[in-house]
Nucleic acid binder design. Structure first.
Length: 880
RNA sequence: GCCCGGGUGGCGAAACUGGUAGACGCAAGGGACUUAAAAUCCCUCGGGGAUCACUCCGUGCCGGUUCGAUUCCGGCCCCGGGCACCA
């Protein structure tokens, strides 16, 4: 055994061993329980950062610990290879997205290699390979046949200068990111997937079946799907004067969840794109101008929700469905055409947004809800939130509905509307169908051919895949496929005449909706084969909380569609979900006269402390002048705080990098990278090496005793203390492995080593070896290289086999037993002392021991004891 | 704006089901070893008070429930994630 811990040598040796054994190739095996643990596939940006290291180490720790517990574990890796960044790189560097992407994949893979992650690379997938995306196209065609995929118009961000569609991310403060032009909304045709057909089932499963998912993710999905019960009602109107495209008599439809407030309607607001608004604008230039104004700006909901609420009266009115009263019609910039009916009824008395709108435009506010408990007075000077409280609200000023509570009022109103043919109860979903068309080059081609005679025609299955040419270079002015005659030219599958290929590509969420099934059978000549039946549903999915809704909901939907097509037999793809946190890093900067910031890499900065160890400032190493602390931020190139695995592995070794990112904080929460924290973990691994070497060498004379079982009854009290400490830490570690709290597993390993590094521990060879054997196996999933080498060098491998498949350590309950224990004594809930009592003491013994304590007596002070609370083995509380 | 999380020493954190707040580690200060440096080891380390036995305060803020609250309930403040074309 080397005298000192040499991470580089240890890691080379361990990895060579695993490679020689082909240790991580996984096969379907009916004889062992399977476990499929998978990380969300990364985008191949080219840079592997420590955040990736954290994510994949969590997965790897899971893999290795479960494998030791006898599971047949699958941990695959692949690449979410289509997407916008490759097109941006193309614009920037004039390199084809395909070339850039494949180079990045190779580079990231090479940076992953030294970490010793147990990926089964034989199952690697890149979503930009035709062998993968042909199945996106194939399933899309199946969905068209079933009516799940369909074509309709969509509203997109339009850059009028670059003449291109922009992603929400590319709209900055309402302007195009490259051109700076004010973005407009534009309607274009596109393909949709009818996820709303599955809304009911998705919601039902979210609420009742996904008990292996974090609660907050389930709640977010539930709210996103958003079932609401309400009433759709119509406001009749007549158009006089020059009739254009609308019938002379019509009904303006709105949906409301508060039909009980129907007598409080004082206006109706239309979306700018509403057909009635379009009609009215023909004879009203001011309105037409306002509608034009509303079309400015992007389509993002956050933008719409935060912008100033503006409106304009149209001069037109509709009839109240129950009273026939004239209700003025407005156009409002906050009413969304793509949502509900594109029109809302305005009840300013009892809806916060309508209230603000009415205040701004001087519309009447009418009270129709009162507090039956009398606690709240109605007041129109400021918004009050109690109207929404169905426990207190009753109708007033509402004629026959006066005095009714929410549910009774809604029922009565719905019945009256139904009798007039002007409304009915309805269930609505917030969830909208999934628009998958992207006016971009680097994605899965949508397999459609446009024929002048036949319209859009699906590509026949035998012609799949429609292969994306890989040599085009986007320049920021639209999809280069539109100029590529080789791709465009084709013949209509129906009539055989010359036709044009669809150039829109699919949303990359399509790629990520089912890749985890393809990992099971990456070479299958079908979309999935029987190997997917073995591995799926996935036992543990791991990824960022930022995917809580969109990706996870699309993957669930896609799974249900595949099930209904008979391709798979399960309802939900992910049995358990774990959402990990981000890895952040400190950043430092200096500002020049123009306010531009120069960001310093943390290693270029020296932090100064006061005498209590509090940081008081920082200086740049290059000139000794002060720099400012920029806070703890997500690692980003622009802030120069990206920590690169290559550097870290060179300085500390992969085991330290892995163990530190596990130790830095709970896996589910964000953590901060710290060089000195990593140095502390490295000290721990160095100490582990030295302690192992000392024990190994000092026991050379008693080699036969090394693997003999420990005789608990023969231990001295101090040796028993060591053994108890080791098994107590082991118990904690095993529990924390189960609940995916790997930071405290590292703590437990540190505690174990602190216990083992003692005279008492070394005084018994069987005890020392048992303890080290437990520690090596407990630490192995986190720091596999160093533990692998020590395991072999100390002779454990010869005795128990390769650490990869060594038996998982078990707690010996006998080691935890204690004759006497310390319990805490409280007087009226405040800590006043500690007493030693027999472990099996009952309440009376504990109480007497507690009362005998001098400090306890001081606080009891002769006052009568009202009550004694005894928590067995923990505390006595004397209430006076 | 709407939905979902989070807030504990100088720092990362721990406390599993309402029961000793701060385990484990980092930074800092003091000391040992050494020609020196590195490495290693020992001591101190939430704040205030103290007769150095101990005591008061302390888990974002305000209030409540309880013998007992970081943990449960109500209200508020701040930070993070998502909002359907970033992935």
């Amino acid at each position: 055994m080397d005298e000192l811990y040499n991470a580089a040598a240890v890691e080379r040796a361990a990895q060579a061993h695993w490679t020689a054994r082909d240790a991580f190739r996984t096969r379907e095996d009916a004889s062992r329980p399977k476990y499929y643990a998978c990380s969300m596939l990364p985008y191949p940006s080219g840079k592997l950062h420590m955040g990736h290291v954290r994510n994949y180490t969590i997965n790897d720790v899971m893999y290795r610990s479960l494998r030791m517990q006898g599971r047949n574990v699958l941990m695959p890796m692949g690449w979410d290879a289509f997407g916008l960044p490759a097109e941006n790189a193309a614009i920037d560097k004039k390199v084809a997205p395909a070339e850039w992407t494949r180079a990045n994949i190779a580079d990231m893979k090479s940076q992953m290699q030294p970490l010793g992650l147990a990926f089964d690379w034989s199952r690697e997938i890149a979503t930009c390979d035709p062998s993968y995306y042909r199945w996106n196209q194939w399933l899309f065609l199946k969905m068209l046949e079933k009516g799940i995929a369909y074509r309709k118009t969509q509203v997109v961000n339009w850059d009028p200068v670059d003449n291109t569609v922009l992603a929400n991310e590319q709209v900055i403060d309402g302007r195009g990111w490259r051109s700076g032009a004010i973005v407009e909304k534009r309607e274009i045709p596109g393909y949709y997937l009818a996820i709303t057909q599955y809304a009911e089932e998705l919601l039902d499963y979210t609420q009742h079946k996904l008990d292996g998912w974090p609660h907050q993710v389930r709640t977010m999905q539930e709210n996103w799907i958003g079932r609401s019960y309400g009433v759709t009602l119509g406001f009749p109107y007549e158009i006089t004067g020059p009739v254009t495209d609308l019938p002379p008599k019509g009904v303006l439809r709105v949906f409301t969840t508060r039909a009980d407030t129907i007598m409080g309607v004082t206006f109706v607001a239309l979306a700018a794109e509403h057909p009635l608004a379009t009609h009215l604008a023909r004879s009203n230039p001011a309105l037409a101008a306002f509608i034009e104004e509303c079309k400015k700006g992007g389509v993002a909901e956050a933008e719409a929700a935060t912008m100033e609420k503006k409106g304009m009266a149209t001069g037109f009115s509709v009839a109240h469905p129950l009273t026939n009263e004239r209700i003025p019609v407005w156009v409002g910039n906050y009413v969304l055409m793509g949502y509900g009916e594109g029109a809302v009824m305005g009840v300013p008395g009892h809806d916060e947004r309508d209230f603000a709108f009415a205040k701004r435009y001087g519309l009447p506010i009418k009270q129709v809800i009162a507090d039956k408990t009398g606690q709240h007075q109605y007041d129109t000077s400021a918004w009050q939130p109690w109207y929404g409280d169905k426990e207190v609200a009753v109708c007033v000023n509402s004629g026959k509905y006066d005095g009714l509570t929410y549910e009774a009022a809604v029922d009565a109103v719905a019945a009256d509307l139904a009798a007039k043919g002007l409304g009915e109860k309805q269930v609505r979903w917030r969830l909208r169908d999934w628009g998958i068309s992207r006016q971009r080059y680097w994605g899965t081609p949508i397999p459609i051919i446009h024929c002048a005679d036949c319209g859009p025609v699906p590509v026949p299955e035998k012609d799949l895949p429609v292969v994306l040419p890989e040599d085009l270079v986007p320049d920021g002015t639209g999809n280069p496929l539109n100029k590529d005659e080789r791709f465009l030219a084709c013949t209509c599958p129906k009539c055989g005449k010359p036709a044009r290929r669809e150039t829109d590509t699919m949303d990359t969420f399509v790629d990520s909706a089912w890749y985890f099934m393809r990992y099971c059978c990456p070479d299958a000549d079908r979309m999935v084969d029987q190997r997917a039946d073995y591995w799926m549903p996935m036992d543990q999915y791991i990824g960022g909380i930022e995917h809580a809704v969109l990706h996870l909901l699309y993957a669930r939907f896609w799974t249900k569609v595949m099930r209904d097509l008979g391709l798979i037999k399960f309802d939900e793809p992910f049995t358990r979900l774990f959402t990990q946190g981000m890895l952040l890093a400190e950043c430092y900067y200096r500002e020049d006269a123009a306010g531009r910031r120069r960001w310093y890499y943390p290693s270029e900065v020296d932090v100064k402390y006061d005498e209590k160890g509090r940081p008081v400032g920082a200086v740049a190493l290059e000139d000794g002048q002060p720099v400012l602390f920029g806070g703890i931020e997500k690692m980003s190139k622009s802030k120069n705080n990206v920590v690169e695995p290559r550097d870290i592995i060179e300085r500390f070794g992969a085991d330290t990098a892995r163990a530190y990112v596990m130790f830095a904080g709970p896996p589910a929460e964000s953590a901060v990278w710290s060089d000195s924290g990593a140095a502390g973990v490295q000290r721990f691994l160095r100490k582990l090496w030295t302690v192992c070497r000392t024990i190994h060498e000092s026991s050379a004379a008693q080699a036969a005793a090394r693997f003999t079982p420990v005789d608990q009854s023969a231990l001295t009290p101090k040796q028993a203390d060591v053994r108890r400490a080791v098994h107590t830490s082991l118990k904690q570690a095993l529990h924390d492995y189960d609940r995916i709290q790997y930071n405290t597993v590292v703590s437990a390993c540190m505690k174990m080593l602190n216990s083992i590094d003692s005279e008492e521990a070394r005084s018994s060879v069987p005890l020392a070896f048992e303890s080290i054997g437990i520690l090596l196996r407990t630490l192995y999933p986190i720091a596999p290289h160093v533990t692998h080498v020590l395991w072999s060098e100390m002779g454990f491998a010869e005795k128990y086999g390769d650490l990869l498949d060594a038996p998982w350590p078990v707690v010996d309950e006998a080691a935890l037993k204690q004759d006497e224990i310390e319990v805490v004594v409280q007087v009226s809930g405040k800590l006043r002392g500690r007493v030693i009592i027999p472990a099996d003491a009952d309440e009376n013994v504990a109480r007497d021991a507690a009362l005998a304590d001098a400090n306890v007596q001081k606080f009891v002070g002769g006052k009568p004891v009202r009550k004694v609370v005894y928590v067995r083995g923990k505390l006595v509380n004397i209430v006076v």
